[in-house]
Design a protein around this nucleic acid. Structure first.
Lengths: 241, 241
DNA sequence: AGTTATTGATGTCTGCACACATCGGTGTCA
DNA sequence: TGACACCGATGTGTGCAGACATCAATAACT
């Protein structure tokens, strides 16, 4: 299960590294981790190997297990994102995800207008119309469900597996926004209209209009959230020489 | 080193899974992999744990190690990308990366104009000017080097670690384009000008112009490459219910 | 200063006990 | 007779313990 010793060891170490409790440069010994987590060597070793593949640690003979700086972490890994969302860097992570989404969704809309399967285009139109209904009726939970489905269909319909992979993060973002009460009970008519515009443009294969409408949604979303993360420190990843 | 038994086991299995030699649904046994790769159980177990975290396999008691479909692979993992570039799906992977880059770079330019450190802005201008010089003189190798640095600085300067993480992939893309002779010895003047436009807009904090100029570069790049991957099959990732 | 020996950590291998999902047999009931 | 629920055998991953191999940082030596 997800609560095997292996997964618990990964989560324990990953949480402590990303939260900063175990800072970059900190060196640990496998043996020390064994009695700290009360597990055997194989559990520690398998966990360390996974953390290594995520860029969280590196192992050196004669030295031990060294924690790597944040610039080495794989920022696209779902688990890394989850750990960051649970840390002090939550705001910065949300901003990064929002910026990525704002960049990707209009491109995905353009591609979906060119490539999406017919069934997906039709469902997109249906979902956009259902969103208006749920939004006008103040059905918050149903609106969230439809909103997630709309944006998932959009990303999936792009035919770009990297775009599609962002479905999970988008769903978490939208859910978080609703749970934290940042969504009005009755979404703005303009936003509802733009969703329908995107769906209909994709349905008729109008890539330019699809991108434009999606871009409007994203710009509005970004400007709404901008003040949430004012003054979140930015992490600049150095350019390797 | 990277040629430890552990890494070789990961590479062996990863290559075979992503190339399709080991198809989705195929079930392997840890013991069988031991004598197939002539390594011990611990090596196999640690390798399988890593492949599991990449979404390439899942393990089930009483069943074995099952290969997962491509829709479960982590498309952002550098190793997965490398394996795909070495497989039949090379064209599709290059297209996905190009589409992602086309979506991200203009957004990165916009953010860099707002957030980049002063030193980075100045270097960006210098690099853009050096690119023109190297391009006009037909110094292909130097131009490639500067091109990589320019786009790396841009992504880094955005202050978004996800954007910055694409530096490696962009470098590989640009290098591949040059190595495969898809780049003219003397880059077009318009492209050189747009690079300077991006740099200068970022230098003066003009986010709108920076995005517009970057967008022109990306649109040109995409239209140049579009015919390279015509008829590459697209992978549609299903929306989870 | 350069070279060699030591040492201590990860890397690799192996045998064992345990947990538990699957499968097939058995018994019960309609 | 047939369908179904139960239950134990089986096989596989999971976790553990101990050993030796390997290699690089450091110390010792020339």
């Amino acid at each position: 299960m997800t609560s095997s010793l292996h997964h618990r060891a990964i989560d324990n170490l990953g949480t402590r590294i990303i939260s900063g409790v175990l800072p970059a440069g900190h060196v640990m010994l496998a043996e020390q981790l064994e009695d700290e987590l009360k597990v055997s060597r194989s559990v520690i070793r398998e966990a360390v190997r996974v953390l290594q593949s995520l860029g969280l640690v590196e192992t050196t003979k004669r030295v031990g297990i060294r924690v790597l700086p944040a610039s080495r972490w794989n920022p696209f890994d779902a688990q890394v994102i989850r750990w960051r969302l649970a840390s002090d860097a939550r705001g910065a992570q949300l901003r990064s995800l929002a910026e990525l989404r704002a960049a990707v969704e209009p491109a995905a809309a353009e591609l979906a207008a060119q490539n999406a399967p017919a069934a997906l285009r039709m469902e997109l139109v249906d979902v956009a119309r259902a969103m208006r209904e749920a939004g006008n009726n103040g059905e918050v939970a149903r609106f969230l469900e439809l909103d997630i489905r709309f944006h998932s269909l959009l990303l999936s319909g792009s035919g770009n597996e990297m775009f599609a992979n962002l479905m999970g993060q988008v769903a978490e973002t939208l859910t978080g926004r609703t749970v934290h009460g940042l969504m009005p009970d009755h979404p703005h008519q303009a936003a509802l209209q733009w969703h329908e515009d995107v769906a209909e443009a994709i349905a008729r294969g109008d890539a330019v209009s699809a991108r434009a409408a999606s871009d409007r949604i994203m710009r509005r979303t970004m400007s709404q959230m901008a003040d949430t993360w004012t003054e979140q420190p930015r992490v600049f990843i150095p350019v390797r020489q």
